[in-house]
Design a protein around this nucleic acid. Structure first.
Length: 558
DNA sequence: TTTAGGG
DNA sequence: CCCTAAA
């Protein structure tokens, strides 16, 4: 079965509170939203503090606690998924910015549970999926934020075909189980991008910087009237300026805050390979794990003002030109991977590694063809990074390509069918976010198959006979039929057996191994270790004929 | 490809 | 189990 999860079919990845209100109309692609509103004193906070705040806002959204509590997902399993950088948009406004609570119809559907919560909403940690970002009092934006705080779950929209005219190049499928020993599926592309949300009344029109800076979603700066009245928005620039001047003359600098609200960001493209027999819960956890890995991998936040990288971290915001008084200037943030890229690439060229235009109203297909992609890298990564789909297909390579041809409705139907038929067997799951086809591509992790006692017995027997350095022989002799046990597995198992044998029985986990076997493990291990040490000592001093003779005699004895 | 070890 | 340098 091959299927593709697309827009609009709803998959709630985390049970929790009511999400319908915020998810109902969401459209295509996978994106997330982070609602934060950190108040930053424009005159005293350095720009690097701004970066830190943005970073914190993102990393605090790490839902690891969620999926940990959800169970069965290893907490330390955080593959280095971050490769792409992303950007986010920021609105700048005054404290009394009258946010609207409306949502655009075209909002794309991956809701990240990063909530800005107001003061009285102290129950934000009640749900494991709820992440908190300490925000300034969102007075006027409470409606909106509360709406968000009810959305505590990850969601994947699967759905409406009309939003996704997927070209074949949108689909990056690789056959699984390519080889006998390495039955893995590799992943290539991934994307992080951000999506913008509009505000009624203040609909922050995209002062689109254009696509000259590949990789950064524009930040929209929202200029507000200092008087705080909505009607002020109707006044001209002159009026605004005069208001600002007025404020400047009558207020201490501490009165001016730059309010940043990061509206959304997108989750990179994810590929999910999941057997039909997997449960829905497995699917949820898998997606959760992937997202967590992305967010948890660490990001570097860069600040761009009018397209220029603000590198001086010690400058204050106001010195850098980021203040409430600014008008149509653009403020952008870039999220870059902390590792995996040479920082010079960004800092030298001043060009972010990966930029997306932020105007979410733009069709995805156009984004793909956008000039930003021509900027420097015409490799498929940038291209792929702009796609936003979740692809599910089973490990059967024969069925993979049917996805390309089947009518989209059928694919959707398949995906729904998958959701409707949770099976009991949890098989291997994998989610691999798309990324630049660079190194360290992720591979599906094999399912865990604990050694049985009889397997341990066979292993011990083989090692007793062959030693600890001939795992291929051990494999051939005792596990030739166990195709899922590689010689590396056997070696690893021996390692853990030795460890198990050395620790107290109280600390052992899993199916208990008979003490008799563990004793043999220790015995064989010490024997072969000593033997190897002796051999090494001999070979290192074999220059002398005497040593050579001694070695030969000993080997003969053995 | 295997081995050996760290993650 | 994964990843990978080294052999």
């Amino acid at each position: 079965m091959t299927l593709k999860l697309l827009e609009n079919s709803l998959v709630s990845l985390c049970s929790g509170s009511s999400n319908e209100d915020v998810m109902g109309e969401r459209g295509s692609s996978i994106s997330g939203e982070v609602g934060i509103e950190p108040a930053i004193a424009g005159n005293c906070k350095a720009t690097h503090s701004l970066e830190r705040r943005v970073y914190k806002a993102v990393t605090d959204g790490n839902p690891s606690s969620c999926y940990n509590l959800d169970g069965s997902v290893e907490s330390d399993a955080k593959p280095p998924l971050i490769r792409c950088e992303s950007s986010m948009k920021v609105h700048i406004s005054r404290d009394n910015d009258p946010y609207s609570s409306s949502f655009p119809n075209s909002w794309d559907g991956f809701e990240l549970p990063v909530n800005s919560d107001d003061d009285e909403n102290s129950s934000r940690c009640a749900h494991p999926c709820t992440t908190t970002i300490k925000a300034s009092k969102p007075h006027l934006g409470e409606h909106r934020y509360r709406k968000h705080s009810t959305s505590r779950c990850w969601k994947v929209d699967l759905g409406d075909a009309k939003h996704s005219e997927l070209s074949k190049s949108d689909l990056h499928l690789k056959p699984a189980f390519r080889s006998r020993k390495n039955s893995y599926t590799r992943q290539r592309t991934r994307r992080i991008s951000f999506k913008r949300k509009l505000f009624n009344g203040y609909s922050v029109t995209a002062s689109h910087k254009g696509l000259n800076r590949a990789g950064v979603l524009n930040l929209f700066k929202k200029k507000e009237i200092l008087e705080g009245s909505n009607s002020a928005a109707l006044h001209g620039v002159n009026r605004i300026r005069s208001n600002i001047a007025e404020q400047l003359s009558s207020h201490t600098p501490e009165d001016f805050h730059v309010k940043l609200s990061i509206k959304s960001f997108m989750v990179p493209e994810l590929f999910i390979e999941i057997p039909e027999t997997a449960t829905v819960g497995s699917l949820k956890r898998t997606v959760m794990e992937a997202i967590t890995a992305i967010i948890g991998s660490g990001l570097h936040v860069g600040v761009l003002l009018q397209g220029k990288n603000v590198r001086d971290d010690d400058r204050t915001l106001i010195q850098a030109g980021i203040s409430h008084a600014n008008e149509l200037d653009e403020l952008s943030f870039t999220l870059e991977p902390n590792s995996g890229f040479s920082p010079s690439r960004c800092s030298n060229t001043g060009k972010p590694y990966f930029v997306l235009p932020c105007d979410s109203t733009e069709p995805l297909t156009r984004l793909q063809a956008g000039p930003s992609l021509d900027q420097g890298k015409n490799d498929s990564s940038a291209y792929h990074a702009l796609t936003s789909t979740i692809i599910c297909h089973e490990s059967n390579r024969n069925s993979v390509h049917s996805l390309l041809d089947a009518p989209l409705v059928d694919k959707i139907a398949s995906s729904q069918a998958l959701l409707a038929n949770p099976a009991t067997s949890v098989e291997a799951l994998s989610v691999v976010p798309a990324d630049k086809p660079r190194r360290s591509e992720l591979v599906q992790r094999r399912i865990r198959r604990p050694f049985t006692v009889s397997e341990v017995e066979a292993l011990v027997m083989a090692v007793e006979k062959l030693g600890t350095g001939r795992w291929r022989d051990v494999k051939i002799q005792s596990f030739d039929n166990a195709i899922h046990r590689t010689y590396v597995d056997l070696k690893d198992k021996w390692k853990t057996l030795v460890h198990t044998a050395r620790i107290s029985p109280q600390h052992r986990r899993g199916e208990p191994v008979p003490q008799e076997l563990l004793d043999r493990v220790l015995l064989a291990h010490s024997y072969w270790s000593q033997r190897q040490a002796k051999l090494q000592a001999k070979t290192s001093s074999i220059s002398s004929p005497e040593a050579c003779l001694g070695l030969l005699s000993e080997v003969t004895i053995n």
